[in-house]
Structures are given as C-alpha cells and as structure tokens.
C-alpha cells in the first residue's frame, strides 16, 4: 500500500480512446506523453491525431518523471471530506520534453514553501487497484 494524500472521493478520470493509454501507463507506474509515430511531435493531453503532420498513428513514450513547477496555487477551500487543507495544485513542466506540462499536485512539502521553478519528481498514489494518480514531491 503506497502512501495516500487524497481521499477515495476525489473525482475519477473520465477516459476516452485517446486518453486511456495515458491512464493505463500510470497504472503501471509510468508517466508518459503522447508522441506521433510518424513525425515525433509530442503533446499533452493526448489527442486523436498529430497537430504537426496530421498522422493518426500516435503512441505514448515514457518521460523521466522529473520536472519543475511552472506555476501553482495553494488552495484554501475544502471541497471533499478528507482532502488536505490547504493543498497545492501545480502545473509541472516535464524534463526532456519540449516544455510539455501536466496538472498535478505537489505534496511532501509545506504549501507555503512551494515555489515556481522548484525541481520535483513524480510518485504514484494508488487510489485503488484500478486507479493510480501521478503526483509530485520535491526532488530528492
């Protein structure tokens, strides 16, 4: 059982043909971004086709799982029982990509100490045996 930061009642993701591979990778402990198999262009969130070359032959590639905080907010409202208060929602710019960002949380640090540019690394919160959510901590 991995560490838990957010409660079971957090919204579960609604997935589509395009996004299912991303969530399946997360379930396996991999943080991925979409990559065009024809021209190599990368994007997030996943889409049906490549915006650069138009190919519908798109797949996923693993990222390094590290990045920096591009921006964030410390939220002082409690929406769901059992949520941490306050909590941090952040946009993480992923290392080794062309500036691609994912929305996630930064935990394992006082919210007041989170800064733009802070190096972070992914960890995987097991919400259930069917759902894993990638969140971030300050890089060790």
């Amino acid at each position: 059982m991995s560490e838990r930061h957010f409660p079971d009642l957090m919204p579960s993701p609604g997935v589509t043909r395009e996004s299912l591979p991303w969530w399946e990778a997360v379930l396996q402990g991999r943080l991925v971004v979409q990559k065009c198999n024809a021209c190599g262009a990368e994007r997030h969130p996943p889409c049906p086709c490549c915006a650069r070359c138009g190919s519908h032959d798109v797949g996923m590639r693993d990222t390094e799982g590290t990045g920096v905080v591009y921006t964030f907010t410390v939220v002082h409202q409690k929406f769901i029982p059992g949520m941490p208060e306050p909590y941090v929602v952040a946009s993480i710019e992923l290392d080794g990509t062309d500036g691609l960002r994912v929305v996630s949380n930064v935990v394992g640090v006082e919210p007041s100490e989170v800064r733009i540019g802070m190096p972070v690394e992914v960890f995987f919160e097991h919400m259930s045996d069917e759902l894993v959510v990638p969140r971030f901590k300050p890089r060790r």
Binding site: D8, M10, P11, S12, P13, G14, V15, T16, E18, S19, L20, W23, H44, P45, V89, V102, V103, S104, N105, M127, S128, E130, L131, V133, R135
Partner: peptide, 20 residues
C-alpha cells in the same frame, strides 16, 4: 476510485485536472 467512460469531450479533458 477507477477509470470511467467520459460522457463528453469536456469531461474527457477534465480528467487531466479534476483528479488533482
């Protein structure tokens, strides 16, 4: 907690923000 079928494109996009 689990994956669910998105009922529309908005919900599909929100899968990358709501769980966080």
């Amino acid at each position: 907690p689990g994956l669910t079928q998105a009922s529309n494109l908005l919900e599909a996009e929100m899968a990358f923000s709501l769980p966080f």
